[in-house]
Simulated assay, not measured.
Amino acid sequence: MATTVHLAQRPEADELLGRSPLAALTGMLLDQQIPMEWAFSGPHTIAQRLGADDLDAHEIASYDPERFAAVLSEKPAVHRYPGSMAKRVQQLCQHLVEHYDGDAEAIWRGVDSGREVFKRLNDLPGFGKQKAQIFLALLGKQFGVRPEGWREAAGDYGEDGSHRSVADVTGPESLGKVREFKQEMKAAAKAAKAAKTAK
Rank of each mutant, 00 (worst) to 15 (best):
Q33T: 08
S84T: 12
P21C: 12
L16R: 01
Q91M: 08
A86Y: 05
K119R: 12
D160C: 02
R88E: 12
C93A: 04
C93Y: 06
T197E: 15
A137M: 03
G144F: 03
D31G: 03
V71E: 12
S113G: 02
R80H: 14
A154V: 04
H99N: 13
L96F: 12
E59F: 15
M185V: 13
H44C: 14
E116T: 14
L7F: 09
F118N: 01
D123N: 14
A77K: 11
A39F: 01
P35V: 02
I46R: 05
A104T: 13
Y81C: 02
E116Q: 15
A61H: 07
R67L: 11
V169Q: 06
K75N: 13
Y81Q: 08
Y100D: 01
G27W: 09
A188P: 00
Q91C: 10
S84A: 10
A167T: 09
V78H: 07
R109H: 12
K186W: 10
V71A: 13
K190C: 07
I46N: 14
N122E: 03
V117L: 06
A153G: 11
A154D: 02
G149I: 04
A167P: 04
R164C: 01
Q183E: 15
R146P: 00
D160T: 13
A194C: 09
V166T: 08
D103P: 00
W150G: 01
A24V: 03
R10D: 14
R151V: 14
K131N: 05
H44P: 02
T3F: 01
L50Q: 11
Y81W: 07
P172Q: 09
T26A: 12
D53L: 00
V111K: 01
P147H: 04
A86N: 12
G155M: 02
E74Y: 05
L7H: 13
H99L: 06
A52V: 05
D123L: 06
A52I: 06
V169F: 04
G161D: 03
D64L: 02
W108Y: 15
I107W: 09
E159Q: 10
L124D: 06
C93S: 05
A198L: 03
K190I: 13
L22K: 03
A187I: 07
P65L: 07
